[in-house]
Computed example of a mutant assay.
Amino acid sequence: MITVMNRIGVKPEFAAQFEESFRNRAGLVDGMPGFIRNEVLKPTKPGDPYIVLTYWQDEPSFRAWTESDEFKQGHARSGSLPHDAFTGRPVLEVHDVLLSSDN
């Protein structure tokens, strides 16, 4: 299993709108082969990034998602926030799960 973590810096004045965009997300990833679950983590300290964390059976499943029509459709919906709502470029990290208390 892998995790894909996307760290997204959001300016405070856009935080509510950013959160609402995830509450109303298209959910297209949910039916993708290899997808396990999605979590959106809200920072507890001002200035820290939001973290969008997805769990996948393997990296090929994640890569297939990023090349799918569903990915393009889902991310086209996320364009409702202006470019200046963000503090910089998102940072994507991929990790193998070495240990999980769920196992």
Score class of each variant (00 low, 15 high):
58 D>F: 14
42 K>C: 05
91 V>Q: 10
10 V>A: 02
44 T>K: 14
19 E>F: 00
29 V>I: 12
80 S>K: 09
80 S>G: 11
93 E>L: 06
67 E>Y: 08
64 A>W: 05
76 A>H: 04
1 M>F: 12
84 D>Y: 05
98 L>K: 11
69 D>S: 13
2 I>Q: 04
63 R>L: 14
89 R>H: 07
87 T>C: 03
9 G>T: 02
38 N>D: 08
33 P>W: 09
45 K>W: 03
37 R>Y: 11
103 N>I: 13
20 E>S: 15
17 Q>T: 09
67 E>G: 14
13 E>S: 13
10 V>Q: 00
34 G>M: 09
100 S>I: 10
47 G>D: 00
58 D>K: 15
62 F>R: 01
64 A>R: 02
43 P>G: 12
42 K>H: 08
18 F>A: 02
94 V>S: 05
90 P>F: 15
66 T>W: 01
25 R>T: 05
2 I>M: 08
10 V>Y: 00
75 H>A: 15
83 H>G: 12
80 S>I: 12
60 P>F: 00
6 N>L: 08
82 P>E: 01
77 R>D: 00
50 Y>T: 00
6 N>E: 06
26 A>N: 14
41 L>G: 10
79 G>C: 08
84 D>H: 07
94 V>I: 13
85 A>C: 04
101 S>T: 14
101 S>F: 15
29 V>T: 12
26 A>P: 14
58 D>Y: 10
87 T>E: 02
68 S>F: 03
22 F>K: 11
56 W>Y: 04
68 S>I: 07
28 L>D: 03
51 I>N: 03
85 A>G: 02
91 V>H: 10
48 D>F: 11
81 L>T: 04
2 I>N: 03
79 G>M: 09
